[in-house]
Amino acid sequence: MLFAMNKNALLLLGCPELPVQTSIALYLANRLKNAGMDVFIAGTDAALELLKVSDPEGHYVDVEKMIKLDKCIESLAEKRMDFYLCSVFMHNDAGIAYLATVHGISNAKLFAIIFGNDADSISEQIEFNCEKLVAKAVHNPLPLKRKIDDKIKEVKRWAV
Protein backbone atom coordinates (compact mmCIF):
# COMPACT_ATOMS: atom_id res chain seq x y z
CA MET A 1 0.00 0.00 0.00
CA LEU A 2 1.48 3.32 -1.03
CA PHE A 3 0.12 5.68 1.57
CA ALA A 4 0.56 3.49 4.59
CA MET A 5 1.26 4.48 8.17
CA ASN A 6 4.83 5.01 9.27
CA LYS A 7 6.24 5.25 5.77
CA ASN A 8 8.56 8.04 4.86
CA ALA A 9 8.49 10.19 1.76
CA LEU A 10 10.97 12.54 0.17
CA LEU A 11 9.98 15.50 -1.98
CA LEU A 12 13.07 16.50 -3.92
CA LEU A 13 12.63 20.00 -5.28
CA GLY A 14 14.20 21.50 -8.37
CA CYS A 15 15.08 25.08 -9.18
CA PRO A 16 12.39 27.23 -7.51
CA GLU A 17 12.02 29.71 -10.36
CA LEU A 18 8.54 28.46 -11.32
CA PRO A 19 5.87 29.59 -8.85
CA VAL A 20 3.90 26.33 -8.84
CA GLN A 21 6.67 24.33 -7.23
CA THR A 22 6.38 25.70 -3.70
CA SER A 23 2.58 25.51 -3.52
CA ILE A 24 2.47 21.99 -4.96
CA ALA A 25 5.24 20.85 -2.62
CA LEU A 26 3.32 22.13 0.39
CA TYR A 27 0.08 20.63 -0.92
CA LEU A 28 1.62 17.22 -1.54
CA ALA A 29 3.47 17.30 1.78
CA ASN A 30 0.16 17.97 3.51
CA ARG A 31 -1.64 15.15 1.67
CA LEU A 32 1.14 12.69 2.48
CA LYS A 33 1.36 13.84 6.10
CA ASN A 34 -2.40 13.44 6.50
CA ALA A 35 -2.03 9.93 5.07
CA GLY A 36 0.32 9.13 7.94
CA MET A 37 3.62 9.54 6.18
CA ASP A 38 6.75 11.12 7.54
CA VAL A 39 7.59 13.80 4.96
CA PHE A 40 11.08 15.14 4.22
CA ILE A 41 11.87 17.82 1.67
CA ALA A 42 15.19 18.39 -0.06
CA GLY A 43 16.03 21.40 -2.16
CA THR A 44 18.33 24.29 -2.83
CA ASP A 45 18.70 26.95 -0.13
CA ALA A 46 16.24 29.20 -1.99
CA ALA A 47 13.67 26.41 -2.48
CA LEU A 48 13.77 25.59 1.25
CA GLU A 49 13.56 29.26 2.26
CA LEU A 50 10.43 29.63 0.10
CA LEU A 51 8.86 26.77 2.03
CA LYS A 52 9.88 28.17 5.40
CA VAL A 53 8.41 31.58 4.59
CA SER A 54 5.22 30.06 3.16
CA ASP A 55 4.75 27.74 6.14
CA PRO A 56 6.21 29.71 9.07
CA GLU A 57 4.58 27.57 11.76
CA GLY A 58 5.70 24.33 10.13
CA HIS A 59 2.15 23.02 9.72
CA TYR A 60 3.00 21.16 6.52
CA VAL A 61 6.71 20.45 6.81
CA ASP A 62 8.87 20.40 9.91
CA VAL A 63 11.97 22.57 9.52
CA GLU A 64 13.99 19.66 10.94
CA LYS A 65 12.86 17.56 7.99
CA MET A 66 14.19 19.96 5.39
CA ILE A 67 17.45 18.78 3.87
CA LYS A 68 19.90 20.63 1.67
CA LEU A 69 19.94 19.11 -1.78
CA ASP A 70 23.64 18.18 -1.82
CA LYS A 71 23.38 16.65 1.65
CA CYS A 72 20.37 14.61 0.58
CA ILE A 73 22.16 13.21 -2.50
CA GLU A 74 25.21 12.43 -0.36
CA SER A 75 23.10 10.57 2.23
CA LEU A 76 21.26 8.58 -0.43
CA ALA A 77 24.47 7.73 -2.29
CA GLU A 78 26.16 6.60 0.92
CA LYS A 79 23.05 4.53 1.80
CA ARG A 80 22.71 6.36 5.13
CA MET A 81 19.14 7.25 4.27
CA ASP A 82 16.37 6.05 1.98
CA PHE A 83 12.67 6.53 1.52
CA TYR A 84 9.55 4.57 0.75
CA LEU A 85 8.60 7.01 -1.95
CA CYS A 86 10.28 9.96 -3.59
CA SER A 87 8.70 12.68 -5.71
CA VAL A 88 11.18 14.60 -7.83
CA PHE A 89 9.93 18.03 -8.93
CA MET A 90 11.26 19.00 -12.33
CA HIS A 91 10.80 21.56 -15.06
CA ASN A 92 14.21 21.69 -16.74
CA ASP A 93 17.04 19.52 -18.01
CA ALA A 94 18.77 19.46 -14.63
CA GLY A 95 15.59 17.93 -13.21
CA ILE A 96 15.98 14.95 -15.54
CA ALA A 97 19.54 14.47 -14.26
CA TYR A 98 18.40 14.62 -10.62
CA LEU A 99 15.55 12.18 -11.28
CA ALA A 100 17.95 9.74 -12.99
CA THR A 101 20.35 10.06 -10.07
CA VAL A 102 17.68 9.29 -7.48
CA HIS A 103 16.61 6.37 -9.66
CA GLY A 104 20.17 5.08 -9.51
CA ILE A 105 20.94 5.54 -5.82
CA SER A 106 17.60 5.01 -4.06
CA ASN A 107 15.13 2.16 -3.77
CA ALA A 108 12.21 4.55 -3.30
CA LYS A 109 9.11 4.27 -5.43
CA LEU A 110 9.75 7.14 -7.80
CA PHE A 111 7.33 9.83 -8.97
CA ALA A 112 8.33 12.52 -11.44
CA ILE A 113 6.31 15.70 -10.89
CA ILE A 114 6.83 17.46 -14.21
CA PHE A 115 5.62 21.00 -14.83
CA GLY A 116 6.45 24.19 -16.76
CA ASN A 117 6.10 25.09 -20.42
CA ASP A 118 8.36 22.20 -21.52
CA ALA A 119 6.63 19.59 -19.36
CA ASP A 120 5.75 17.26 -22.25
CA SER A 121 9.18 17.33 -23.85
CA ILE A 122 10.88 16.80 -20.48
CA SER A 123 8.58 13.88 -19.79
CA GLU A 124 9.50 12.29 -23.13
CA GLN A 125 13.21 12.48 -22.32
CA ILE A 126 12.90 10.23 -19.25
CA GLU A 127 14.37 6.93 -20.37
CA PHE A 128 13.42 4.66 -17.49
CA ASN A 129 10.23 3.57 -15.82
CA CYS A 130 8.73 5.80 -13.16
CA GLU A 131 5.35 7.30 -12.39
CA LYS A 132 4.94 10.62 -14.20
CA LEU A 133 2.56 13.39 -13.23
CA VAL A 134 2.76 15.91 -16.05
CA ALA A 135 1.04 19.30 -16.34
CA LYS A 136 1.95 22.39 -18.31
CA ALA A 137 1.67 24.52 -15.18
CA VAL A 138 3.78 27.59 -14.48
CA HIS A 139 1.80 30.07 -12.38
CA ASN A 140 -1.45 28.20 -11.78
CA PRO A 141 -0.98 25.11 -9.63
CA LEU A 142 -4.45 23.67 -10.27
CA PRO A 143 -3.61 21.45 -13.30
CA LEU A 144 -0.82 19.81 -11.32
CA LYS A 145 -2.94 19.59 -8.17
CA ARG A 146 -5.59 17.73 -10.18
CA LYS A 147 -2.97 15.22 -11.38
CA ILE A 148 -1.85 14.65 -7.82
CA ASP A 149 -5.45 14.26 -6.57
CA ASP A 150 -6.16 11.75 -9.37
CA LYS A 151 -3.03 9.75 -8.55
CA ILE A 152 -3.86 9.65 -4.85
CA LYS A 153 -7.42 8.50 -5.65
CA GLU A 154 -6.01 5.78 -7.93
CA VAL A 155 -3.57 4.61 -5.28
CA LYS A 156 -6.28 4.53 -2.64
CA ARG A 157 -8.38 2.34 -4.96
CA TRP A 158 -5.48 -0.10 -5.32
CA ALA A 159 -5.03 -0.15 -1.58
CA VAL A 160 -8.63 -1.11 -0.83
Partner: peptide, 12 residues
Protein backbone atom coordinates in the same frame (compact mmCIF):
# COMPACT_ATOMS: atom_id res chain seq x y z
CA UNK B 1 25.02 8.52 -11.01
CA UNK B 2 26.14 9.00 -7.41
CA UNK B 3 29.80 8.24 -8.21
CA UNK B 4 32.01 10.18 -5.79
CA UNK B 5 34.51 12.47 -7.46
CA UNK B 6 36.53 14.82 -5.25
CA UNK B 7 33.96 15.57 -2.55
CA UNK B 8 30.79 15.47 -4.63
CA UNK B 9 28.42 12.77 -5.80
CA UNK B 10 27.87 13.14 -9.53
CA UNK B 11 24.39 13.96 -10.76
CA UNK B 12 23.32 12.77 -14.19
Amino acid sequence: PGYKLFDVYLIG
